[in-house]
Design a protein around this nucleic acid. Structure first.
Length: 655
RNA sequence: GCCGACGUAGCUCAAUCGGCAGAGCGACAGUCUUGUAAACUGUAGGUCAGGGGUUCGAUUCCCCUCGUCGGCUCCA
């Protein structure tokens, strides 16, 4: 090796000179645990790779996003090795890091059982303990094809490499193919190898914590036309503590599962008799829903919306005009044949709103015309995707369509986004980011300049709200750009909530027109927007956000009166009467349970306020509060107590 | 729709290697009532998701359907 004897590099912002053959790991004095890889000139490198002249080198900490991804990717390799040791006939698919973990796909005769997972995990722990080295080796395409002759899926990826160089794949990518050998640290013997771009942690010992999570089928390369492989998901972290935190979050999320809370709190159910994805709301869920809707109506009324109503079913003609029958038929329930006509359940409200717009001539003076409806729609969701209230077949959208002139579009979009964000905040969601889906240059309708202006306006408004803006280039539907509001809930999960979408297509198809000031006929701009998305879904999100402990204004039962003994029931009933007169939803627990049991029941039903009354309270014309957190406030005069509750309801406070 | 797991009382879960199905909570009835998360006693409650098959006999084994759960695809 007559390598250059000295190399000039930049480390931590300072110029350094190191001997030729120095590795990134040596240069960074990395231990392979807190620092798992290096970044040189923006590219991630193995610690064992030699530095190059002129490198600007930074460490990749284990607890950074890249660091975690590397740990997870390496863990995926360990898993694949374990799988192939236990199931030698298993063929490899791909095994990338993903959010919070990693997966690897395998072609196996029999799907993995939970027992298999245990065996695989056990073997993985042995491999980790053994400290196998991840050793990078560049290969030519032909060499790779030869070495991986038994791995048909890997061969397919090698074959794809040339054509799809832009594909960001962890297997192939960059200029050359590389294979990672896993070597026995003592003997240097080859234990396993995989086609992989890398980088990897230096040894399997650099995987501090991991756990296999679940299995499932997954189509090869994500297409349902391809064979289905068996995927194993796992998680891996830079420390045991971080992993425990993550697992704890999952437990917390499970406790908040709206499907579970919905049954426990008697909010809604999915009767088998109705069919999959068709919820019914019980009285308690019904109250929440009604309050949600009432408040939304009130706010829409204040914001200048007109309320409309449309039927649930229509002749096919409407969806021929709108084009739904061309491009959305799979998502619709099949037609009913009646009197020689075909009728469809409506999957969307907008076509019907268009009919309202064009029911008579429209003047520019009427614009913006904002039509709002709680419109119930039915969509044929495939059986495997139905999920609680978040993915259903029958749902009610808080759907609005705004018809305006080009000149009005800008202001309308601005006020609309503010309206949406304000309203979401009122429902208790206040941590947002926005996603802007822009034009797909290959596929769009409508004039360029309107796309441009609408997109720019959406961007401006997003920026003026000081919200994080994620771009989704080319992600818009063909008929218009879209901005969607993503909300983070109480435990940091994000949900797609509202969408605001321009539609340049339907006004054309329905030949919508208004008469402008100069007497010409113009096509209106149509803005489509749903704030909740669907009431069902939003309801589900709120259940999870609040973990079922709704703020008083939404709580189905706001107050439970609990007598210390039977003798105090009638006093509490008087209190309840007064409270009801102030609009409070209050119940008195007059059952023959003991007081402690009543408290337990009320606590479990997550009622915001308990009002207790015994001899002491009655003597002072008072009641005693118990709050959800177990705190109490005793001897509060009845009027004051009611005022406090009314205040919390009116101000929509959480308590 | 596809791959896999699952479906026992209102809920949470036992049991039956093919031989009369069980508990806790809840419900109901009665007894007892005094200060912040479970009083006591009793009663009712099941075509073991539905249908078909194998068998002397099926909740148990096989097939189909429905539903639920975890993934994939999809989410206009």
């Amino acid at each position: 090796m007559s390598a250059v004897s000295e190399l000039r590099i930049t480390l931590a912002g300072a110029a350094r000179v190191v001997a030729g053959g120095t590795t990134y790991g040596e240069a960074l004095e990395a231990d392979g645990r807190s620092v798992v890889a290096a970044r040189a000139g923006g590219e991630l490198k193995d610690l064992a790779a030699p530095v190059a002249e002129g490198d600007v080198i930074e460490p990749v900490p284990a607890d950074s996003p890249d660091g975690r991804a590397i740990i997870r990717h390496s863990t995926a390799h360990v898993m694949a090795q374990a799988v192939q040791e236990i199931f030698p006939e298993a063929r490899l698919g791909i095994g990338p890091p993903v959010e919070n973990g990693f997966y690897y796909d395998f072609d196996v005769k029999n799907p993995f059982t939970p027992d298999d997972l245990k065996r695989i995990e056990k073997r993985m722990r042995e491999i980790v303990k053994q400290g196998q080295l991840f050793s990078r080796r560049p290969v030519s395409d032909d060499e790779a094809a030869g070495e991986l002759a038994a791995e048909p899926y890997k061969l397919e990826l090698i074959g794809l490499k040339g054509g799809a160089a832009d594909e960001e794949s962890v297997e192939v990518g960059g200029a050359e193919l590389t294979i990672y050998d896993n070597l026995d640290p003592k003997t240097g013997e080859l234990c396993w190898k995989d086609l992989c771009r890398g980088p990897h942690v230096p040894t399997t010992r650099s995987i501090p914590a991991f756990k296999l999570m679940r299995t499932g089928g997954a189509y090869w390369r994500g297409s349902e036309k391809n064979p289905q492989l068996q995927r194993i998901y796992g998680t891996a972290w830079e420390s045991r503590e971080k992993q425990d935190e993550y697992l704890h979050l999952l437990v917390e999320a499970e406790k908040r599962d709206h499907r579970k809370l919905g049954a426990e709190l008697d909010l809604f159910s999915f009767p088998d008799e109705l069919g999959s994805g068709l919820p019914v709301f019980h009285p308690k869920g019904g109250v929440i829903r009604r309050v949600m809707e009432d408040y939304s109506r009130k706010r829409h009324e204040e914001a200048g919306y007109s309320f409309v109503n449309t039927p649930h079913i229509t002749k096919s003609k409407l969806y021929e005009i709108s084009g739904h029958l061309d491009w959305y038929k799979d998502g619709m329930f099949p037609a009913m044949e009646l009197e020689g006509a075909e009728y469809y359940l409506k999957p969307m409200n907008c076509p019907m709103h268009n009919l309202i717009f064009r029911s008579r001539g429209r003047s520019y003076r009427e614009l913006p015309l904002r039509l709002f409806e709680f419109g119930t729609v039915y969509r044929y969701e495939k059986s495997g995707v139905i999920h609680g209230l978040t993915r259903v077949r029958g749902m009610t959208q808080d759907d609005a369509h705004i018809y305006c002139t080009h000149e009005q579009m800008r202001d309308e979009l601005k006020s609309l986004l503010r309206f949406v964000l304000d309203l979401l905040r009122d429902y208790g969601l206040d941590d947002f980011y926005l996603e802007l889906s822009t034009k797909d240059p290959e596929k769009f309708v409508g004039p360029d300049e309107v796309w441009e202006e609408a997109t720019e306006t959406l961007r401006e408004v997003a920026e003026s709200e000081n919200l994080e803006l994620v771009l989704d280039p080319g992600g818009a539907a063909f008929y218009g750009p879209k901005i969607s509001v993503q909300a983070r809930d109480a435990i940091g999960r994000t949900w797609q909530m509202s969408t605001i979408q321009l539609d340049f297509n339907l006004p054309e198809l329905f030949e919508l027109e208004y008469q402008a000031a100069d007497g010409t006929r113009q096509r209106p701009v149509k803005i489509h927007r749903a704030l909740f998305g669907s009431i069902e879904r939003f309801f589900g999100v709120l259940v999870e956000h609040y973990a079922g402990a709704f703020p008083p204004w939404l709580a189905p039962v706001q107050v439970v009166g609990i007598p210390i003994a039977e003798a105090h029931v009638s006093y509490l009933q008087d209190v309840a009467k007064k409270a009801r007169e102030r609009g409070i939803r209050i119940e008195v627990d007059a059952s023959d349970d003991r007081m402690q049991k009543k408290i337990r029941n009320a606590q479990k039903s997550k009622v915001p306020f308990m009002l207790l009354a015994g001899d002491e309270d009655i003597a002072g014309g008072a009641v005693s509060f118990r709050f959800r957190n177990g705190e109490q406030k005793n001897g509060v005069p009845v009027d004051e107590a009611i005022a406090e509750i009314v205040d919390a309801i009116e101000r929509r406070l959480q308590v």
